[in-house]
Amino acid sequence: MAALQRGANVSLTREVPGLEHVVVGIAWDPAIDPALADNLRLAAILCGAGGAARSADDLVYFNQMVSADRSVAVGEDPGDADLEQIEVDLPLVPADVERIAFVLHLNEGSPKRRTLNQLKTCVVRVLDGRSGTALLQSVDLANELTTESAVVLGELYRHREHWKFRVVGQGHASGVVGITRQFGLPL
């Protein structure tokens, strides 16, 4: 399996007919700072028309582990290859959700400013939720991170009758504040 570059996409349901359950996983190596790993979190944002969250209920993360419609949930056992995972049940995703963005962010109130450029590696993978088979993997996104404290890793989105996944790799130096602004979420 070739690693996908930023901006590259794959039609998941075209490549795997009958695919209904996907798992988006993230693996990173925090290099030297163990506190960095302790404060990294994966989140998913369900987005409607225009790329904005429909409400605060569309944010799935450690404090809200399942979307209101039960289509997206924080994974309970990421296994050996991933440190965190988000599970998506495609048939349950509401029709007005056009895409689901996957975000890695630093969740810290520490006076010591940490950034994602401290990561040695950062790779996003998409798995078939039933078989556990890896469907795609990104290139190492850590190489292009500098002052960011949050990054949109990728997005699962509808394209006609299919679901596709795109590797994004867009970071925000303003962290969670930048993410909330981008997706229209309240802070």
Rank of each mutant, 00 (worst) to 15 (best):
L90M: 01
L135K: 03
L12W: 06
L156N: 05
V151Y: 06
N143Q: 14
V74K: 14
F62T: 08
Q64P: 04
D140G: 09
T13E: 06
A2R: 09
A81D: 09
K120R: 05
D82V: 08
G75L: 11
L4A: 03
H159V: 09
Q137Y: 09
A173N: 04
R166S: 07
G171R: 05
L185S: 05
A35R: 04
V152G: 02
L42V: 03
R158D: 05
C47T: 12
E87W: 12
R181D: 14
P34Q: 13
A37L: 08
F165M: 03
R70K: 11
T147N: 13
F183D: 07
D58M: 11
G132D: 05
L127S: 08
H159N: 11
A44V: 01
L127N: 05
I45D: 03
I32A: 02
L185T: 07
R114G: 03
V126Y: 02
T180N: 06
L104Y: 00
D29N: 05
Q64G: 00
A81S: 10
T121S: 14
E144G: 02
R166T: 02
A3Q: 06
E76Y: 14
Q85D: 07
K112T: 08
Y157S: 03
G154E: 04
L153F: 03
G178T: 08
L153V: 04
K112S: 01
L187A: 13
Q64N: 02
I32L: 12
N63D: 08
P30F: 14
P17D: 00
G171A: 03
V167A: 00
Y61Q: 08
Q170C: 06
M1C: 12
G175V: 04
D58G: 10
L187V: 15
R130Q: 15
R14N: 07
D82T: 09
V10I: 11
C122F: 05
A8H: 05
P34H: 09
W163Y: 12
A81P: 03
V10S: 09
F102I: 04
L46H: 04
G184L: 14
N39S: 11
S67C: 01
A150F: 12
R14G: 02
I179R: 07
L12Q: 08
D80R: 15
L185P: 10
G79M: 10
D33L: 10
G171C: 02
L156T: 01
A27D: 09
A73K: 06
H105T: 04
I32Y: 04
H159P: 00
H162F: 15
E144P: 00
M65I: 13
V72M: 05
I45A: 03
A81V: 14
V139C: 00
K164G: 00
